[in-house]
Structure formats: structure tokens, C-alpha cells
């Protein structure tokens, strides 16, 4: 079950936000978060994610950047720095692309690692329907195109089953 989705660009702006938790009543989250505007919420989330990422980098010996070793693929995942954190009511997953886009998803605390899913969103939905969309000009605008919205919605729904 996925609660919401944030996409931040390199300039720290939230360029896309989606929320799926209203359809299913999850009382704990609804009461807390709906008092806040999503813009405010996104700023807070960005702050948390940004600080955690930097903290993880500083504490790690390899600077948070994975060392390339083709032999042991399992290790790469562990070296990627900050991936997620978990509380009693939700789990936050974080994925950063080489170009500095930050994908954040909040989900049910029992959800396993969602790195692959976030990567898939980036590769199959963001690149295809935003980067390759001739009518999206600036990378600093809020993404407001129906094609992207629908594809993301479909994808998330198909994953939540």
C-alpha cells in the first residue's frame, strides 16, 4: 500500500506530488497530514530527506557513493547511502538519480525495499512522459500533464495489489 509520492528536482522544488491514502481510510495518517497543505508537507519531507542523506554520507566511509564492483551485486545496494526509514505508521523510501532528481514514496511500514520500483518510475514514466514530452519545457515547473499522472497512477495501483 502506497500513501503518497513526491518528486523533487535539483533546485529543491517539489515538481510532483500525489496522494493515494484518501481512498482507503487510514485514520492515523489522515488526521495528521490533512491539516497541512501539501506544499508545506513537501518542504518538510525535503528537509528530512536532504538532512538524512547528508548525514548518511558523512558517517559513511565511501562518501555515500557506491564503489563499482561488478562481482558482488548484492553489496551495491547496501552502499547506496540513505534508502529508507521506518516508523510505526509508515515507511519512507528514497531514490536519487545521477541527475539529482529525488523520488520519495511513503508506504505501509511492512513494505519491502522499493528501490526497484522507484527506479522503474524514473525510467519508464518520468523519462518517457516528462523528458520526452515536447510540451514540457522547463525542468522547474510543476508537472501537470495528464499522461504522466495517469501512467503513474496506473503503475502505483498495479504495484499495490
Amino acid at each position: 500500500m502506497i500513501y503518497n509520492f513526491y518528486l523533487f528536482n535539483r533546485h529543491c522544488n517539489c515538481i510532483y506530488y500525489a496522494n493515494w491514502q484518501n481512498e482507503k481510510d487510514d485514520e492515523n495518517l489522515n488526521t495528521k497530514n490533512n491539516d497541512m497543505k501539501w506544499e508545506e508537507e513537501a518542504k518538510l519531507v525535503y528537509g528530512v530527506v536532504y538532512s538524512l542523506r547528508n548525514l548518511c554520507r558523512k558517517l559513511s566511509s565511501v562518501n555515500g557513493v557506491p564503489e563499482k564492483s561488478e562481482k558482488d551485486d548484492d553489496k551495491i545496494d547496501e552502499d547506496r547511502g540513505f534508502l529508507s526509514y521506518k516508523t510505526n505508521s509508515y515507511k519512507l523510501h528514497y531514490y536519487e538519480t545521477a541527475s539529482g532528481l529525488k523520488f520519495v514514496v511513503c508506504s505501509d511500514p511492512r513494505t519491502p525495499n522499493l528501490q526497484d520500483m522507484l527506479h522503474q518510475i524514473y525510467r519508464d514514466i518520468y523519462v518517457e512522459y516528462v523528458v520526452k514530452n515536447p510540451l514540457y519545457h522547463s525542468d522547474n515547473d510543476y508537472i501537470n500533464n495528464t499522461l504522466f499522472k495517469n501512467k503513474l497512477h496506473e503503475f502505483i495501483k498495479s504495484q499495490s495489489k
Binding site: E128, Y129, K132, N133, P134, L135, Y136, H137, D141, I143, N144, N145, T146, L147, F148
Partner: peptide, 19 residues
């Protein structure tokens, strides 16, 4: 197939014209 307007359907035709 990947084209979708960022500013609503009304402007779609106008924006697509050059393409």
C-alpha cells in the same frame, strides 16, 4: 504518443501546431 500539455487540454492544439 508522449505529448501531453502541461497547461490543460485547451492549449493542446495550439501547442502541438508547430510539431
Amino acid at each position: 504518443s508522449k505529448m501531453s500539455s502541461n497547461s490543460g487540454q485547451e492549449d493542446f492544439k495550439k501547442e502541438v501546431l508547430p510539431y
